[in-house]
């Protein structure tokens, strides 16, 4: 199969959905001739014109709020917030308005919008351009949160998100934009709220999100040489997430490592650990549930400090070995 990058896969999903459905349009800062801060929307302005690829002023609140208003009245907007850090400026509109509209109005309205935003560290952009804030959105009923780790998933999940009738926060990984993988040329969907076992194994379950899926798979390949078979589960959708696939894997392996880049305290991993502890997999655990996550610090600028602020492949390998010490 043809291989394209994660960024190209997202662009292809946008293009194909815009071709299919005239209600889909894009709005955000510098997404037109500039192509977006990471070049994801390059070429779409030329193909679809300024009416459907709309550069906005630096106004995150109204980007999110107008997307919700347009969605409420029959459109399917895909808004872009240039860095996930800047979703803080749109929180009122996302959390109080878009997420609540349907329930608050008795289930008689729908808000089919997508908010795309790049997250994560590793680019030397320091504390205000590097965060992974997905857990905040996972905490909000009415929002869906999607976080793809491969080009294939990025395209299929984005098409599902655009066709979904709810507000979806689509978290893209800056460090994955240039990674390549097989992606079918035709449109296809990857269903929301369905996890995928990215690598099967019998000894340890790693539940990882975003770029940590890639690091976990690299770690798993090395651990296999030591005879440790790691199963890597990627939830792909963080809200509502697929507890069943995770539970099934944990029952099989009895050892759990959760890996994400976001801050550890009250991160998505805390939810997964609690879900496992409360659920049927608990009785199958051979070791304490282990979390590897970002340190509870603002992302530092210095290259070495930044590297050590979030989990790396070697940390995952060490953590798995430690889990294997439990018999």
């Amino acid at each position: 199969m043809r291989e394209i990058t994660y960024a190209e896969a997202i662009r292809e999903a946008l293009r194909q959905e815009m071709q299919r459905d005239p209600h889909v349009f894009l709005m955000g800062e510098d997404i037109g001739v500039y192509g977006g801060a990471f070049g994801v929307t390059l070429g779409l302005l030329e193909e679809f014109g300024p009416e459907r690829v709309r550069d906005t002023p630096i106004s995150e609140g109204v980007i999110a709020g107008a997307a919700a208003g347009a969605a409420l009245t029959g459109m399917r907007p895909v808004a872009e917030i240039m860095f996930m850090d800047f979703t803080t400026l749109a929180m009122e509109q996302l959390v109080n308005q878009a997420a609540k509209t349907r329930y608050m109005f008795g289930g008689k309205a729908k808000v089919p919008m997508v908010l795309r935003t790049p997250a994560g560290s590793g680019t030397g952009a320091a504390a205000q351009h590097s965060q992974s804030l997905e857990a905040w959105f996972v905490h909000v009923p009415g929002l869906k949160v999607v976080m793809p780790s491969t080009p294939y998933d990025a395209k299929g999940l984005l098409i599902s998100a655009i066709r979904d009738d709810n507000p979806v926060i689509f978290v893209e990984q800056k460090l994955l934009y240039r990674t390549k993988g097989p992606v079918p040329e035709e449109p296809y969907t990857v269903p929301l709220s369905v996890a995928e076992v990215k690598r099967a194994g019998r000894d340890v379950t790693i539940i990882a999100t975003g770029v940590m899926v890639v690091r976990s798979l690299a770690a798993a390949a090395k651990l296999a040489q030591e005879g440790i078979e790691v199963e890597v589960v990627d939830p792909r959708t963080l809200k509502p997430y697929d507890a069943e696939t995770i539970t099934k894997s944990v029952i099989k392996t009895g050892r759990v490592l959760i890996v994400h880049e976001a801050y550890k305290t009250c991160g998505f991993g805390a939810e997964i650990a609690a879900m496992i502890s409360e659920g049927p997999a608990f009785m199958y655990l051979n070791a304490p549930i282990r979390r590897l996550a970002g340190l509870d610090i603002p992302i530092p600028y210095n290259r070495t400090l930044e590297y050590h602020a979030v989990p790396q492949e070697e940390n995952i390998i060490t953590a798995v070995r430690e889990l294997m010490a439990y018999k």
Binding site: R52, G69, L72, P77, N96, Q97
Partner: peptide
């Protein structure tokens, strides 16, 4: 919503961008 009342919001100012988005929808449609 069906009769065009896009609703009341409890957050002061919270409905202003909703109106802008609805107007954008009208312009596009």
């Amino acid at each position: 919503v069906e009769s065009g009342n896009l609703g009341a919001t409890g957050v002061v100012g919270g409905g202003i961008p909703t109106a802008v988005g609805a107007a954008l929808s009208v312009q596009l449609r």
